[in-house]
Simulated assay, not measured.
Amino acid sequence: MKIKVINPNTSAGMTDGIRNAAEVATRPTTEIIAVSPDMGPASIESYYDEYLSIPGVLEEVKKGDADAYVIACYGDPGLQAAREITTSPVIGIAEASLYMASMLAARFSVVTVLPRIKTMIEELVASYGMQHRVLHVRTTPMCVLDFERDPEAGMEMLRQEGRRAVQEEDAEAILLGCAGMAEFADELEKELGVPVIDGVVAAVKFAEAMVDIGKKTSKLKTYKYPEKKQMTGMLSNFSWG
């Protein structure tokens, strides 16, 4: 099977890290296609960044070149729209991490990047009906790409916030709230003594399972293909039908 993992930002280094995390987690017979869109922000740390990343994500899904798609940003940008344009499963890494955590722990906390995205993640958690399971969204002073530039500092930030979540909040699992944090999960889990869930790994494993059992995205109503209409200007390539 082919699973396309879409890094919604345009950082090639981060895409390489995401590819490595996905390939380690999946079976040898699963082909991972890791891509960044041709257009979009260098990193996603605001609503503005997130919304501008969505056309690039949809463009990659629209190619129809995989058995399943993973959106590898913790905001799950474009997830619902992507499901409208394919029958293949489409999974967001935040969604996958929350669902996996709910099967492993009663209560858990998210550790993520800059404080400004705390509200964004809290709203996302609520949209998945998980606000009663998430104890806290903990932030660090580091940007998304800082974890790539200085992994030692990144690990220390995650260690500190993860330890506070476990000791002060009784978090029974930790969710890493950025696709660029995948490499830290195993070491953190050993140190903290609770499950540490990387959304990229969770999403590709769910994708493998869905493809294995032949499940497709429902086209009955909500996720049926978009109505035929023309788009204009910069969106002319997104006309449907």
Rank of each mutant, 00 (worst) to 15 (best):
P195S: 01
M130Y: 11
V137W: 03
A126H: 10
L98W: 08
E208D: 13
D170E: 05
A202H: 05
M181F: 15
P55Q: 14
T232I: 13
L145S: 14
V5G: 14
V201P: 01
I54P: 08
I91D: 08
L79P: 01
K190A: 09
K215P: 00
E189I: 01
V113T: 15
S218R: 04
S53T: 07
T222S: 13
E189K: 07
V134H: 02
P37F: 10
L192R: 00
T232N: 15
M142G: 01
G177R: 03
A173N: 02
D186F: 06
G92A: 04
I32H: 10
A22D: 07
I85L: 06
M142C: 12
G75Y: 06
T119H: 11
N20K: 14
E169P: 00
V110A: 04
Y74F: 15
I71L: 12
K190L: 06
Y69N: 10
N237C: 07
A171M: 00
L176P: 03
G177F: 03
A68C: 04
P226E: 11
R83K: 15
E183Q: 14
S236A: 15
V125F: 07
M142S: 13
K190W: 02
A22Q: 07
A12W: 07
I91F: 06
I71H: 09
T140I: 05
M100P: 00
K215T: 15
Y48R: 14
D49C: 06
I54N: 12
A68V: 09
S43F: 08
G162P: 01
E187C: 02
E168H: 04
M231A: 13
G129R: 04
A72C: 05
A165M: 00
Y74P: 03
E152G: 06
S88F: 02
D65H: 07
S46I: 11
K219L: 08
M210F: 14
N7S: 14
I3H: 09
M130W: 09
Y48K: 12
V137Q: 06
P55R: 09
A179Q: 05
L114D: 02
V61I: 14
I117E: 06
A185F: 03
M103G: 10
Q80R: 11
E172P: 02
L58G: 07
R138A: 13
I197Y: 01
I71T: 04
L175F: 02
V125N: 05
I18G: 10
L176V: 04
A42S: 15
V204D: 05
R83E: 13
T119C: 02
A165D: 00
T86A: 09
M1G: 11
R19N: 08
A153S: 13
G193F: 01
D67N: 15
R116Q: 14
R83M: 13
E23H: 04
S218N: 09
T86H: 09
I117W: 05
T139V: 13
C178S: 13
G92M: 09
T30S: 07
M120F: 12
R138M: 06
Y99L: 14
